[in-house]
Design a protein around this nucleic acid. Structure first.
Lengths: 142, 142
DNA sequence: GCTTGAACCTCTAGCGGCTAGAGGATGTAT
DNA sequence: ATACATCCTCTAGCCGCTAGAGGTTCAAGC
């Protein structure tokens, strides 16, 4: 029987976050001691590890919910899990492409700054005038 | 004299967002008509463009506040603006590196899925067991 | 058995950066 | 004069946590 603190250490998830996962129904309600403290078993430890690892790979909690659901039904075809992972991969690739464009632009800005007064600062100038950019870039919601 | 809607179209910023920027003090309070509607001038259009462009390059609103402040004082040395841009560049590079590791892992997961039942699904298996990963990855707060 | 103190509990509020919607007022074109 | 697009304020919600207040429980040491 594991306390929430132990679970926290074993998975690298903050205690508050574990409770939050329970609250939104991602983790099941655990057993309780007489005094009302949570006690977990190994199945729950595995589940949290799964969640944590998926988060590290950038999956949203919604996607994780689906993945957990699939994981709970080993006899169903795994196309869906595959599709979710593919979607995630695609997102990661899109984000990388965007970041690449941003990096180019930022590098150019920083390079051209000659260290004078802000009035002549290339960094600020570029920010003022998008037309100085070589690439289009639509970051914002990333 | 520009309405908020015109400003919105010209900069690609949603009307609500412009009002939000005003609320948090990033945009100045504009003039109003007798009836209380906002009316902007070109200086404010420029400022919003600056903000929008900076957001596209991934700067936080806090960083943008600093950049705007520097931009308002053309006689100060521009080291600070340069430093902010360099920090942003560094962040972008870090994010790229992390995404690269994630991409590798996701690709491998997707590749190895042979399309059977979820019980044998490589995707789910990898999520279950971090030790199957070739790289360490600490995404989460990205 | 008693005391300490770390770890637990619930609850509320906040972060960033918006976004959505209710419910109503204004501005402009016809 | 009327229609109706656009504007206004206000509140609440999104994601994924995180922090803190104020109080209780557990386990170890004496």
């Amino acid at each position: 029987m594991l306390t929430i603190g132990t679970l926290s250490k074993k998975t690298g998830t903050k205690v508050q976050t574990i409770r939050y996962y329970e609250q939104i129904g991602l983790m099941p309600e655990p057993g309780r001691t007489e005094g009302g403290q949570r006690r977990y078993d190994n199945a729950q430890l595995d589940r949290l590890s799964f969640i944590r690892h998926s988060r590290q790979l950038g999956f949203s909690l919604v996607a994780i919910r689906e993945l957990l659901d699939l994981s709970d039904h080993p006899n169903r075809p795994c196309d869906e899990a595959d599709a979710i992972a593919r979607r995630q991969l695609k997102q990661v690739e899109q984000r990388m492409a965007r970041l690449k464009a941003l990096r180019t632009e930022l590098k150019r800005m920083v390079h051209e700054c000659s260290g004078g007064r802000t009035g002549d600062c290339k960094v600020l100038e570029v920010l003022r005038d998008h037309s100085e950019c070589l690439t289009e870039h639509e970051e914002i919601g990333a």
